[in-house]
Design a protein around this nucleic acid. Structure first.
Lengths: 335, 335
DNA sequence: GTCCGGTATGCTAGCGCTGTCATTGATGAT
DNA sequence: ATCATCAATGACAGCGCTAGCATACCGGAC
């Protein structure tokens, strides 16, 4: 007797696995594809059908599996972001600028950090690309040719930021780091400074700033500036003051460093007044720079704008490929 | 004649689509599964075979498709991270702390921002969960019951941070925000302050700090403190000083705000000296607080440690579910 | 009545991997 | 010689979705 083998209609098993399109479809008495359409193109489904499907999704707590969807459609709706570190306000601003645009359009952001390490950068690039992002934004350019090659392969938009390489992999948005260094040196020279110094990291961007700074100082007839390579934080800046007893003008490659410099100068003995005895100029225009005593002069860069521009570049692969957002030398009271 | 239909062996077409496991397998003269093993468990493949496969991968520039792999294995090797905004040093530190641990273990980080908006938070939760993360970390708790429900469904580790709810969805790591407020009020009372004020955001964590601060002030026999709800930045802090002409002790819910307060106080007329006339205490222990004049007293929180602890909690779902990392009242010179 | 175009829905085949079993041959124990 | 064991490899099905086409039905034009 067939009936004997029939099971008692059990309570829905406590779903070891999350509900699928097919389950929703069954509940709503439609086919899977219709459920898919309710999610993606609700306008193409008749009102009553749509209601039934929505009710079924609701009652099951259905959350689409975008992994499966991405595989089937070859569209991941995700972008990759690679920064040296997110714990640096300036990059965090850029990531936020990008996210603001991309999240609103339904893209997810995959974040990876290279820690200024080429090997780590390559590893993270693989990890990112393995998830088939539809575009990638990174700070700077790949440190290795293999990295660049990996980015070229998939033929997706790739936006390099915070600098403007001659030949970007695909697109770039940033400013001329060398010119920023030049502008600061010129300013120091024009205000009668004699002994310049530069403090900053040794990544490609910081190095380009240094080169511009040094070359312009020399071109202005000043002694070759000293260069100190430091951690990118205020503590390092404060400590560095002891190492620069004679400088009368210091360019710090980022504002945190500059604020540390200012703090070191405040307690230096013999006394070194800012800006009378020493001028300090930072880069980035961190909000807190404005609130340091004295308010910090800086090379203003709009990190969030870079992120938003990067979003535009990846969304319009046929459009502009190189956006110079420039910088602005903001002279406040520190020099 | 069959041979007639045979095609001339063409140059490999310029790969409109990226190479697959199957292509690599064909090149290496093995089956797809063997290539998969070379990638995931190289020890189980004989040396010469492995070499051939690796050469094939190399020459094709093969990058595995983790979307497909995740679907097949039901393991995404990704985690979701939801923060109010990444452009806040304190959350950026937490994200970095988490990433440091998880990236090293091969997990990718999907980042989403809620912008302190419950509706946005829900949207981002769906976007995150749709990608089937193996765990989720968020700052705070879901603002809505629907959000909480969504997080409970998939039975993955969920770590709430920066606070310690009585009954976390799954796990939590942070500190007692109320106690932080109490500690600051107690400190103010103990040092003879009379008219307290609180400035900060109105998110749940800031509100809890406020409640502790207010209750303790009253319990100490002081007048009920004033509360100012502000943007979470230094500019807002500086401007707020005009609104608090009588306060002799101000607790700012974050350090950026506090540094702005300090800046506002420096230029206030009539003169208000810190700490003689007004004490200022912040929260977070932003590096730059130490370099403000006067060095900022603060409730020290280790954001990166919270991130690292969150990683531990998600990696060991059977272990501890509630970690109190505490805080430390660091009295420097501002109060 | 026939045909047309449009709307609403469904079927089928795969996307690129991995889990689960098979299969093969070599090795050592008995 | 026989069998169990192990290492190395492969066949096959299927993860949960979507593209692309097919089907059914409707009302109106002819």
């Amino acid at each position: 007797m067939e009936a004997a083998t029939e099971q008692i209609e059990a309570e829905p098993a406590p779903a070891r696995t999350s509900p699928t399109l097919a389950l929703v479809a069954e509940r709503a008495g439609v086919s899977a594809i219709t459920v898919s359409r309710v999610i993606r193109t609700p306008g193409k489904v008749a009102e009553p059908t749509r209601r039934r499907v929505e009710a079924a999704m609701q009652s099951l707590g259905y959350v689409p599996n975008l992994l499966a969807g991405s595989l089937a459609s070859a569209r991941s709706q995700a972008i990759g972001v690679l920064v040296p570190t997110i714990a640096n306000a300036i990059f965090a601003d850029t990531v936020q600028g990008l996210s603001d645009v991309m999240e609103a359009l339904g893209y997810a952001v995959m974040l990876a950090q290279s820690r200024y390490d080429p090997a780590q950068e390559e590893r993270m690039l693989v990890a990112l690309l393995a998830r088939r992002p539809e575009a990638v934004m990174m700070v700077g350019s790949p440190a290795t040719e293999r990295g660049a090659e990996m980015l070229r392969r998939p033929r997706i938009p790739v936006v390099e930021t915070w600098e403007l390489p001659e030949h970007p992999i695909d697109a770039a948005v940033g400013f001329d780091n060398r010119a920023a260094g030049v502008a600061v040196a010129r300013h120091f020279a024009a205000t009668g400074r004699q002994l310049l110094a530069y403090v900053g990291g040794n990544d490609p961007r910081a190095t380009r700033r240094w080169e511009g700074f040094r070359d312009e100082a020399i071109a202005s007839g000043l002694a070759a500036p000293e260069r100190l390579v430091l951690e990118r934080n205020a503590t390092a800046g404060q400590a560095a003051i002891a190492t620069l007893p004679d400088a009368d003008a210091i360019f710090a490659s980022n504002d945190a460093l500059a604020i540390g410099l200012l703090a070191g100068l405040r307690v230096a003995r013999p006394r070194r007044r800012v800006p009378q005895d020493v001028a300090v100029v930072g880069l980035g225009d961190l909000e807190l720079g404005r609130f340091a005593p004295p308010p910090l002069s800086t090379v203003r860069i709009d990190g969030a704008a870079i992120g938003r521009a990067a979003a535009r570049l990846m969304l319009d692969p046929g459009g502009e490929r190189r956006v110079d957002l420039g910088f602005e030398l903001v002279i406040r009271e520190s020099g």
